[in-house]
């Protein structure tokens, strides 16, 4: 055990000392506050993260980790979604056939498809609960009012993603789900009918609609989501970090 631990930490040191690691993480290994800040500052992927957070904000009871769960679901969705795209053809007889191929031929196809599906449900659920949590913790009040609006936009984009993905298997559920949904959109005054026409690329749910929903689901909406998500997380940090349950004493959670 001990010998193993030795080599384990030796391996860590070896990696940290390598030229590749050092060209990615351009700072020393010393556990100093300065170094910790540099890790965040000098990395594109981490720099939206604050350098320091209060330990209590990490507690489960503080935020119930709802935002984090939602983001994790998104990561799973992107990973599995890309995998599914390798086998999916957005064309009318083939789309449903590809579902069968995933089930009957592709190794682990059902697993990735189901993972995508359940992660999608989790993401919608997580986003809704997150919103509720923010509401009950009065976290929508200034200075966070702008981020609340961003959050609402994110929820809408999430729902649209969920909805556009629903058509892609091209089964009976999908077909009628989208028929009903787009007819609801049509009922909107003035804008409704042209919106439905644009969305479906025609008057009926056909191959055009499938292709449009595919592009929305795989390109436009994810791009929008990632953009807004960046702003959202950035605002969380700029607005003073996550706000948990409001406490009677004035809040001083932030360290610059």
């Amino acid at each position: 055990m001990n010998g193993n631990a030795f080599s384990f930490s030796q391996l860590g040191t070896l990696i940290r000392g390598s030229a590749v690691y050092r060209s990615i993480v351009r700072h020393g290994t010393a556990e100093t506050n300065r170094n910790r800040s540099l890790v965040i500052f000098e990395n594109l992927f981490l720099h939206v993260h604050p350098v320091k957070v209060r330990e209590k904000t990490l507690k489960f009871s503080h935020t119930y980790w709802l935002g984090g769960i939602t983001v994790s679901a998104l990561v799973v969705l992107i990973a599995t979604g890309i995998l599914l795209m390798f086998y999916y053809h957005p064309s009318v007889p083939q789309a449903y056939r590809d579902m069968k191929e995933l089930k009957f031929v592709v190794d682990n196809g059902v697993f990735y498809r189901n993972l995508h599906r359940w992660a999608a449900h989790l993401m919608v659920l997580g986003a809704l609960l997150h919103m509720g949590r923010v509401f009950y913790h009065r976290a929508y009040r200034p200075p966070r009012q702008f981020n609340w609006v961003i959050g609402v936009v994110l929820l809408l984009v999430t729902l649209l993603l969920s909805y556009t993905g629903y058509l892609l298997p091209w089964d009976q559920l999908a077909f009628w789900g989208v028929s009903v949904g787009t007819n609801m959109a049509k009922e909107a005054p003035i804008l409704g009918p042209p919106l439905r026409f644009l969305m479906l690329g025609g008057n009926i749910v056909s191959e055009n609609a499938l292709l449009r929903f595919y592009v929305l689901h795989c390109v436009l909406l994810p791009a929008a989501l990632l953009g807004f998500l960046g702003v959202h997380i950035w605002r969380v940090r700029k607005d003073g970090g996550v706000q948990g349950p409001p406490e009677p004493p004035a809040d001083d959670e932030v360290e610059p």
Partner: peptide, 11 residues
């Protein structure tokens, strides 16, 4: 490994 397996066409 599973992803590699997934990506290999079976038919």
């Amino acid at each position: 490994l599973t992803v590699l397996d997934y990506l290999e066409p079976k038919v």
